[in-house]
Computed example of a mutant assay.
Amino acid sequence: MPTLWEPLRPVPHPRRLLFVAPHVGSGAAAARDLAHHLPDDWAVHGLVLPGRERRFAEPPAWTFEDTVVSATLALEEVAVRYPGTPLVGLGQCSGAWLMYAILARAASDLRSRRDLMVAVSQGAWHLPRVHPDLPDSSEAMWAQMVASGDVPRSVADDEDARDLLEPVIRSDYAAVADFPTEADPLDLPILVVVGAGDRDIDRSVAHSWVRYGTGLEIEEVAAGHFPLRDDPVAVARAIVAQVDPATSS
């Protein structure tokens, strides 16, 4: 099976490992710009879900539990190559719930190495979910995706892109609809990053994470609903400031 964690920036002897779970309809590449703006000695890996990137040949359907189990095992295989190296987990939008569950499930010998959980543009488990049902009609689905800002008009107007992405998006929405609505707290701090222009996730929503970690910090950046795309520099700066303030600027 192709690797579940795409190395976005391999580092032979990293000082820190960052693992990123993407948002609905996306892939590991969503974190590529972020990787470029982190310190040179950070190794960055992005989660590859079925039906895209290295796993393009696989059926796009997936479930939360199966993905958490397989992604956790794969993360452990990566982390064991770098004994003692601290790790950070980040998830954008629905990827935040995936990354949280992966960190929670990680083997006991990795738990002391977890530095931080980063939730980008997502509220905590118990809040109402913001993903609406997708229409059966392909045209209506793409119109909804464009109107919500989740997909650029250029993608929706590209027939080849639509043929490739529609099964992935539908599978992702179906998976998210069955995500758990509660979770035990993590024994590590949580950083929540929100976009100043996000219509759905603001500071009050970000504060919903307060009961899920040992501490909560909220960072607002000049972005919409996708800060990894809109302002990766600010996101990188916020992460480094939390775990390595001596090197942040």
Rank of each mutant, 00 (worst) to 15 (best):
A206T: 02
V193E: 00
H207K: 07
P180S: 14
H207D: 12
V210M: 06
V193K: 00
I190R: 05
T181H: 15
P180Q: 11
Y212I: 05
L216Y: 03
Y212Q: 05
I201N: 01
T181K: 04
F179Q: 05
D202H: 10
D187T: 14
V194T: 01
A177R: 13
E220R: 12
V176G: 10
D184K: 05
E219Y: 13
A196V: 09
I218V: 15
R203V: 09
L216K: 09
D184W: 13
V210K: 06
G215I: 08
A177P: 05
E220K: 07
S204H: 14
A183D: 01
G215M: 09
A196G: 15
E220D: 03
V210F: 12
V194P: 00
R199D: 11
L186E: 01
D172M: 00
G215A: 15
I190K: 04
H207E: 08
D202T: 11
V210S: 11
L188N: 09
D202Y: 08
D172Q: 01
E182Q: 10
R211D: 11
P180H: 13
W209D: 02
P180F: 15
D200V: 15
F179G: 02
V205S: 02
R203Y: 04
I218W: 06
L216G: 08
F179S: 05
G215L: 12
R199L: 13
V193G: 00
F179Y: 14
D187F: 07
L191Q: 12
P189W: 01
G195T: 07
